[in-house]
């Protein structure tokens, strides 16, 4: 279980997160929606401390970290309980697909090389890249790179996987293959928090949708309800702008 309490974040004088509370239960798939600049990516990055919140508390399972004075050990521990899939994949450029997945297992989780390799191969096969083990990131398509990124996160068997707009940098025809992989993982009951613009995906896969705007959570709830009968005007406006049916006028 992940519990965020009163998370506050400033960039300079600009407050991007205002007292955010959010709880994600074990096995839940939560999709965070919102216009750009709404703070959704920042919120996600606060969970594993890639962004340092100015105040609040991040808790994962038993571990609760006060954002006012986190120790290095606490930050490390938060990161070991989570894994992240990045918008721009961020695969280690000097390592092969297999090495990318093994790296965290060997260096951080201290698995024996053989065991790490076995697990990595298994996970890469699961994302459909069993034949690309020795390819370097530069030799893979965007979709393939992102699937390696997902495998890297999955192999760590974290308590939750954080997805930061995993399909935004992809060519349109590559989006499907990546969403398919994420969809399959979701079925396995892994806790996931996903920041995305893919409305169809949110509707089908999410257990809960969180809509953010202006650094606050405007509305959250069952996707069926949010998409069909949003309570808040801001949510309605956003959905109107972003859903394909509304775009014919352009």
């Amino acid at each position: 279980m992940i519990r965020l309490r009163r998370i506050t974040k400033f960039f300079g004088r600009n407050q991007v997160l205002k007292d955010i509370d959010l709880t994600v239960e074990k096995g839940e798939v939560v999709v965070i929606l919102g216009p750009s600049g709404s703070g959704k990516t920042t919120l996600l990055r606060c969970i594993n401390y890639l962004e340092k919140p100015n105040a609040g508390e991040v808790a994962i399972g038993e571990l609760a970290v006060d954002c006012k004075r986190p120790s290095k050990k606490d930050i490390q521990a938060l990161r070991r309980k989570t894994a992240m899939v990045f918008q721009h994949y961020n695969l280690f450029k000097h390592k092969t697909a297999l090495e990318n997945v093994m790296e965290g297992l060997v260096v951080v989780r201290k698995l024996a090389k053989e065991e790490a390799r076995e697990r990595s191969v298994r996970v890469l096969e699961k994302v459909g890249l069993g034949d690309k083990l020795d390819a370097y990131p530069s030799q893979l398509s965007g979709g393939q790179q992102q699937r390696v990124g997902i495998a890297r996160a999955l192999a760590l068997e974290p308590e939750a996987i954080l997805f930061d707009e995993p399909t935004s940098a992809l060519d349109p025809e590559r989006v499907g293959e990546v969403l398919e992989v994420i969809r399959n993982i979701a079925k396995e009951g892994i806790t996931m928090i996903v920041v995305t613009h893919e409305m169809g995906f949110a509707r089908d896969v999410a257990n809960r949708v969180v809509f953010m705007d202006g650094g606050v959570i405007v509305e959250e709830g069952d996707p069926k309800i949010i998409f069909s009968r949003p309570k808040e005007e801001r949510t309605r406006q956003f959905l109107k702008r972003i859903t394909p049916e509304a775009n014919y006028s352009i």
Partner: peptide
Amino acid sequence: DRGQAEAAYSVGM
């Protein structure tokens, strides 16, 4: 690229 370090942190390094 900064993303390289972020990815390393994200796997717990």
